[in-house]
Amino acid sequence: MLKKAAIIICVVIIGFAGLRQISQSMDQATRYDQQMDAQRQDILSKRQELVDQLQTVEAKPNPSDHDRWLMAHLTKSIEGLDKVIGTVDAGQQRMARQSFRTWAGLGGVFLGLATFALVFAYRPDSQLSAEDRALLQHPLSQTDGIRLDPQSYQSEAAPVSSGANFVTGRIRQQDIATLRIQGGRMMKAFAAAFIMGPVTYLGIDGYYLLTDVLNRGMEAEFSSVLDSLVMMASFGLGAILILNAGGPAITVDRQAQVFRVAGKQSDIPFGDVASLQFNDILVTGKYTHQNHQIQLNLKNGQSLSLLNHAGKEQMQADLIRLARFTGLPIAVPAV
């Protein structure tokens, strides 16, 4: 409950900070528009004066050489003011685009954060399903379909790449012959919150680029879209790392009788696996987390971490689910 409250408070603080930034951006855009409008009106007033002078000179029945020089000078001055007006209009358009881009991008970030907060508060991965509770009703020794194997128990846990203080993934059945480790709802919501802003920026810049290309052809500016693509690539990589937290991507194929591990060239046949094992581990680094782990004990003495996170009951339920699905025994310490 305390963790939920802390997450919600952080999201609220970020939301207020973002709204304040949007308000400041709107004030800045309004002041800029007012300044540009005043400047534009001054230029239009000056232009009208020059047009009136030009019309007066052109109305003379017999213009002198000086009149013809003055008409050419006034025409050139009017054309120069037209260019200035075009520059002012383009500046206002760029400012309007930048303001809208900022507001929409922040809106995307807030939407992602709100989704993350709602998932964390109301649909946490730590909540056990009815199936999970049914699997955990009895000790392993009294659970149907479970074989225990003290002989293959390994005292040292398989190495892990990272740790977390929440549930990062679950083992779910894809179809009748396949199990797969899937990222938890919170990890997916966190990845979505992480990438929502860059996606919004890229969409807006892409729309503006398409509009410019249709109006100006290849003279359109591509710099904003390129910047958005770079940001999208950076945040996209971060989102992929978030989704892959907690262990490698693994598929369990009962029909082919193999474990398919992402990053490994060859599959691991069921016949090469001695047992499954549940471990309590301490993941150290910048932060220290108490984690729980499902590992494969191979018959050649090696081991592989399938999944690790902070949810003990979730991990135990997934261990039973995996053991029943594969028919492999669960290694336990000898009594």
Rank of each mutant, 00 (worst) to 15 (best):
L81K: 11
F110Q: 15
R68W: 06
L81A: 00
S129Q: 08
L81D: 09
S152T: 10
M95R: 12
Q154K: 00
Q137N: 09
V160K: 07
T102C: 02
R133A: 11
G112H: 03
L74N: 08
A59C: 02
G145T: 09
Q142C: 01
A134P: 00
L113W: 08
Q137V: 07
K46G: 14
T143R: 07
N165C: 07
S129N: 09
P139C: 07
A157S: 01
W103P: 06
D82G: 01
F100E: 11
S161R: 10
A72H: 12
Q41M: 12
T178R: 09
V160P: 01
D52Q: 06
A90G: 08
D65S: 07
D132C: 04
Q154W: 05
Q53N: 12
G108P: 01
Q151N: 15
R123A: 11
R123C: 05
Q41F: 11
K60T: 06
S152Y: 05
T115S: 12
A96W: 01
L148M: 09
P63S: 08
D132V: 01
V167L: 04
A121V: 06
V88E: 02
H66L: 15
E156R: 03
R133F: 03
Q173G: 04
D125I: 03
G112M: 05
Q98I: 05
R47C: 00
V167Y: 00
S152H: 12
T87N: 15
Q55N: 13
R170Y: 11
Q154Y: 05
R133C: 07
D89A: 12
W69Y: 13
P63F: 07
A117M: 00
S64Y: 00
I43N: 08
N165F: 00
I43V: 15
S155G: 07
A158C: 01
G108E: 00
P150K: 00
L128I: 05
V167H: 05
L148K: 10
G163E: 04
Q151P: 07
S64N: 04
R170Q: 13
K83D: 12
D67T: 03
Q92R: 12
R40W: 04
T115L: 14
A38F: 04
R68K: 13
P61C: 05
E79S: 10
D65I: 11
Q41N: 15
L136K: 02
D125N: 03
S45T: 10
I171G: 01
A177F: 15
G169M: 03
A90Y: 03
L136G: 10
R172S: 15
